[in-house]
Amino acid sequence: MSTENTQDEATSRYVRLQVELIVELTDTEALTSAALDQIGEDEYMPEDERGHAEDAVRRDEAEALAYLVDPFDLVTSVPGIELVQASWSSAHTDYDPDDEEWDLYEEDEAADEDG
């Protein structure tokens, strides 16, 4: 077995899963309250970081959402995998469902035609 084959086999063990979600904020008070509750219950968060997190959540609903959504939860029940690394962010965006920019299915169809 050559070194190249070994590297290909090792590389193929890792998969990058990209997920993009657009959510509509329907109750910002409930969202903020839930995020503050979660921050308050986090026994591992240092107190100085807790104050900063609470302030950020009170000022920005996108921050509140980021504290509540955990990518680890997406894969913990999937058999045969172990999460190696994760990062996520949340930001306000302009969304127009009629704008072609937001037609995610069109991108998938184009990729299928190219492949």
Rank of each mutant, 00 (worst) to 15 (best):
A30K: 12
D94T: 00
A35L: 05
R58F: 06
D70Q: 01
E4C: 13
I39P: 09
L83G: 00
Y14S: 08
D94M: 03
N5D: 09
L104F: 13
E9F: 15
V69R: 04
D42H: 11
V57C: 10
L104G: 10
S33G: 09
E47F: 10
D8K: 14
H52D: 10
D103L: 02
R58K: 06
S89C: 14
T6R: 15
G51V: 02
Q38A: 13
S87G: 05
D96H: 00
D55R: 07
P97C: 03
T3E: 15
R59Q: 13
T93F: 01
L21P: 03
L31Q: 10
A64D: 01
A91D: 05
V57D: 09
T76V: 05
T93E: 04
D42N: 15
I81F: 03
M1S: 13
D112V: 06
E41T: 02
L36P: 02
V23Y: 15
R50F: 00
E109G: 03
Y105F: 10
A53Y: 02
Q85K: 10
L65E: 06
H92L: 14
E4I: 14
E101H: 05
H52K: 13
E49T: 00
A62L: 09
A35T: 01
D99E: 02
I22H: 12
E49G: 02
Q85C: 07
Q38D: 13
S12Y: 12
D55E: 11
D108E: 13
M45L: 09
T93K: 02
D60A: 00
L17S: 06
L17H: 06
R58Q: 05
D108V: 06
D8F: 15
R50I: 00
G80F: 09
E29P: 06
P97E: 06
S77H: 07
D98F: 07
E61W: 12
A111N: 03
T32G: 05
